[in-house]
C-alpha cells in the first residue's frame, strides 16, 4: 500500500469507529477515542521539531497548557465561542513558543532539553499561582465551546468528528510542510547544522519557525483537550505530560509522518487495556514500551516502511 491509500484507509477506519462502537454498545469509548485523536495532534506537533528538526524539546506541554488555559480563561470571562477561543488559543501558544523558542534555540544538546523543561515548569507554576483562575485546583469550563450551525460539541459523535477533522487537517498540513523546501531544510539541519550554516542557511530562523508552528498546533490540541473534559488544570502542563508526548513520538516513530498518531494510539490504548486487567498498569505499559523500543527502534510506524524510504534515526 502506498502512503496515500494508507492515509485514506486510516481516515475511513477512524470515521467508522463511532458507529462501530455504537453497534457494540460501547459508546463510552467514543470520548476516549476523541482523546486519542487530540493527543495524536499534540504528539504530531512535537514530532515536527523532535523528529524532523532534531530538537529535543522537553517542554511541549507548556504550549498545550497555553492553548487550554486560553480557552478556560475566556470561558470564565464569558467568551464561549470556538471561533474566537480556538484561534486565540493557537495564537497564544504560538506566542509562547516564539518567546521560549527564541531563547532556548540559542542553546544545544542537553542545555536545550533543560531550558525547555525549565520554561515549561515556569509556565506551570505561573498557572498554579493564578488563584483567580482556579490555581492548583483548575478551572471548570461549564460546557464545551459553542460552534453554531446547529452543532453541539457536547454530543459525543459531533465532538469526535470535530477532533478527527481537525487532526486530518493538521496532519495534511504537516505532510505538505515536510515534503516542501522547509521540511527538507529542517531535516538537513537535524543531520548537520554546521554544514547547513556553511552552505548559507539561516538555521536558527528555520528552527524557530518550526518551533512556533509546533507550538501553535500544540495550542490547538490544548484547546481541544480543555473541551474534552470541560476542565483545565495546571496538570496539563506538568513535565510528565511533556514526557508522555515524547514517549508517544518515540514509540510511534521519530520523524515518521504518522509517528505521533500511532504513538498516541498505542500508548493510550495500552494504558487503557492494561488498566482493565491489572493493577500494575504502569509496570505493564513500561514492559511493552521496552519491547517496542528494542524490537522496533524506528517506532511502530517505521515498521510499515520499506527500509529504502525509512527516515534515518
Amino acid at each position: 500500500m502506498n502512503q496515500r491509500s494508507l492515509a485514506i484507509a486510516g481516515i475511513v477506519a477512524l470515521a467508522l469507529l463511532p458507529p462501530a462502537l455504537q453497534a457494540l454498545d460501547q459508546v463510552f469509548y467514543i470520548g476516549f477515542a476523541a482523546r486519542i485523536l487530540i493527543y495524536a495532534m499534540a504528539a504530531s506537533s512535537l514530532n515536527l521539531i523532535l523528529g524532523n528538526g532534531g530538537m529535543l524539546s522537553f517542554g511541549h506541554a507548556a504550549f498545550i497548557g497555553a492553548g487550554a488555559y486560553t480557552v478556560g480563561i475566556l470561558a470564565a470571562e464569558g467568551v464561549g465561542s470556538a471561533w474566537v477561543a480556538w484561534p486565540l488559543a493557537i495564537v497564544c501558544a504560538a506566542a509562547a513558543a516564539l518567546v521560549i523558542g527564541a531563547i532556548s534555540l540559542r542553546t544545544r544538546g542537553v542545555y536545550f532539553i533543560m531550558i525547555t523543561l525549565a520554561f515549561a515548569q515556569m509556565v506551570y507554576y505561573i498557572l498554579v499561582s493564578m488563584k483567580a483562575y482556579g490555581g492548583d485546583d483548575g478551572l471548570n469550563l461549564g460546557s464545551r465551546s459553542a460552534v453554531g450551525f446547529g452543532l453541539d460539541l457536547k454530543d459525543e459523535f459531533t465532538w469526535y468528528y470535530t477532533c478527527l477533522a481537525l487532526l486530518a487537517v493538521v496532519l495534511y498540513l504537516l505532510n505538505r510542510m515536510t515534503a516542501a523546501r522547509f521540511g527538507r531544510a529542517l531535516e538537513a539541519i537535524r543531520e548537520n547544522e554546521t554544514r547547513m550554516e556553511a552552505i548559507g542557511f539561516a538555521t536558527y530562523r528555520h528552527k524557530l519557525v518550526a518551533f512556533v508552528i509546533a507550538g501553535a498546533i500544540a495550542g490547538l490540541a490544548g484547546a481541544l483537550l480543555a473541551n474534552q473534559s470541560s476542565f483545565v488544570s495546571p496538570k496539563l502542563m506538568h513535565w510528565t505530560q511533556s514526557g508522555t508526548l515524547m514517549v508517544m513520538v518515540i514509540i510511534g516513530g521519530v520523524g515518521h509522518r504518522y509517528g505521533g498518531l500511532v504513538g498516541a494510539l498505542v500508548l493510550l490504548g495500552l494504558e487503557e487495556l492494561i488498566a482493565e486487567f491489572t493493577l500494575y498498569s504502569q509496570l505493564g505499559v513500561g514492559m511493552v514500551l521496552l519491547g517496542i523500543v528494542l524490537f522496533a527502534p524506528q517506532g511502530i510506524a517505521g515498521l510499515f516502511q520499506r527500509s529504502a524510504t525509512r527516515p534515518l534515526p
Binding site: L173, A179, R181
Partner: peptide, 11 residues
C-alpha cells in the same frame, strides 16, 4: 529563493 516554503512539494 526562500526555504520558508511550506506548500509546494520540493520534488
Amino acid at each position: 529563493g526562500t526555504s520558508l516554503s511550506f506548500w509546494r512539494p520540493r520534488h
